[in-house]
């Protein structure tokens, strides 16, 4: 495990430059404070934090607002990360949209984190996903064309449990969809093609 830090951002170049020049990475609470949390951090909560006003007063001049959130991500090997999104909209719209997009953002945050982690040489072993017997079994039945309710009946588990195993298997395989997970699992010889 190395102690390197990776950052990927798609903010405007002018803001990135200003951000680094000012050394905002050292005081920005959306990085330091939010990354250590367990739950999602809505930036509203960080307003009293030191550094918030300083960073976001400048950010406003670059057209970046403070309506955003940070999703902390923890990996199995002591690695951690944070995925932040910001949206220029009214508070009302933000509060309406947030519950709709939050699940998707969690999945993408974890997926994004894993991709970055897998690039490092020291994390090479992470490329071998550690699926449980149950997760493989569920994927194998998906590959055999069974629906989730069918698989629940076959394995005598609830449909919800099938879904939880499938979701876990997808994420371990770094796949965003079940089809992609099945393709990868066959490619890695975790399950058989049928």
């Amino acid at each position: 495990m190395d102690s390197s830090i990776h950052g990927v951002v798609n903010y405007p170049d002018a803001w990135k430059q200003h951000y680094v020049e000012q050394g905002f990475q050292d005081i920005d609470p959306t990085l330091a404070a939010a990354a250590t949390n367990t739950g999602v951090v809505d930036w509203q909560r960080l307003k009293p934090a030191e550094g918030f006003q300083k960073v976001f007063r400048d950010a406003a001049e670059f057209g970046i607002c403070s309506t955003g959130l940070t999703i902390p991500v923890r990996g199995a090997y002591g690695d951690s990360g944070a995925f932040s999104v910001v949206r220029n909209c009214s508070d009302a719209e933000w509060n309406r949209q947030r519950p709709e997009i939050i699940k998707g953002l969690q999945i993408h945050a974890a997926n994004f984190h894993d991709r970055i982690m897998r690039q490092g040489r020291s994390m090479f072993f992470m490329r071998q996903p550690n699926l449980s017997a149950r997760e493989k079994e569920v994927l194998q039945w998906v590959a055999a064309g069974k629906s989730q309710p069918d698989i629940g009946i076959i394995l005598s588990i609830s449909v919800r449990t099938v879904e939880v195993h499938l979701r876990s298997a997808r994420e371990k395989l770094g796949a965003l969809t079940t089809s992609q997970a099945v393709a990868r699992a066959i490619g890695m010889e975790i399950i058989y093609p049928l």
């Binding site: 367990t38 991500v73 199995a76 699940k103 969690q106 999945i107 945050a109 974890a110 550690n130 699926l131 449980s132 017997a133 149950r134 997760e135 939880v164 195993h165 979701r167 876990s168 994420e171 371990k172």
Partner: peptide, 14 residues
């Protein structure tokens, strides 16, 4: 509890 199996891991499972 997991009887030697790896745990479930998912961003939407706490």
């Amino acid at each position: 509890i997991l009887q030697g199996e790896p745990p479930l891991r998912s961003a939407t499972l706490w």
